[in-house]
Structure formats: C-alpha cells, structure tokens
C-alpha cells in the first residue's frame, strides 16, 4: 500500500477552473450517452454525484467545485453574454 498518499487541493488553482470542469463533465456525460444538461441539473438540484459518470474522472472533477459555484458560473455566462 502506498503510505505516501497525498491529498491535493485543487480549489481556486486557476480562475477558469469551474468553467473547465463543467465542460469536461459535459463531454464525459455526452461520451457515455447521457443527456448532459439533465444530468448536470440533477446534480445541482440533488447534490448527488451519482448523476455524474465516473468516465474520464468526471465525478471526481465536479466534486472539486461547490454546487453554488457551478450555478454562479452558469448564471454569469448566461446573463453577461
């Protein structure tokens, strides 16, 4: 067993992290044949990572940002464009 397991903190590592995570999760859900919008909405509403596929590490990625941060990013993008 690897005794030297290190816990990395990716929060706020770079400013566009939330957007990049949303896009990667979207891509992973699409690749696995899910409706990505429905799945991401389901995750935001319930908080259950079951909505997000483990494909391409998407489930781990989405848990690195808070749900309110995802919603903020989506609203900001929608309202400011």
């Amino acid at each position: 067993m690897n005794q030297g397991t290190v816990k990395f903190d990716f929060s706020n590592e770079y400013p566009n992290q939330t957007r990049e995570i949303i896009l990667k999760v979207y891509e992973a859900l699409t690749e696995k044949g899910y409706n990505p919008i429905n799945q991401i909405v389901g995750y935001i509403m319930s908080g259950d990572p079951t909505y997000i596929t483990s494909h391409n590490n998407a489930r781990s990625l989405i848990s690195r940002v808070e749900r309110d941060e995802i919603l903020e990013e989506l609203l900001r993008y929608y309202l400011e464009r």
Binding site: Y34, M45, T50
Partner: peptide, 19 residues
C-alpha cells in the same frame, strides 16, 4: 438516482431523483 440515470440513458424522462 442510479436507476433513474439508467432509465434516462435508455430514453426515459425522469427528473428530480435524489430530491
């Protein structure tokens, strides 16, 4: 949620599972 995910992937329209 997992069962709803399965059905949705197959063409169902289920929303709100997990709430």
């Amino acid at each position: 949620v997992d069962i709803a995910n399965f059905l949705n992937a197959m063409g169902a329209d289920i929303k709100g599972a997990g709430t």
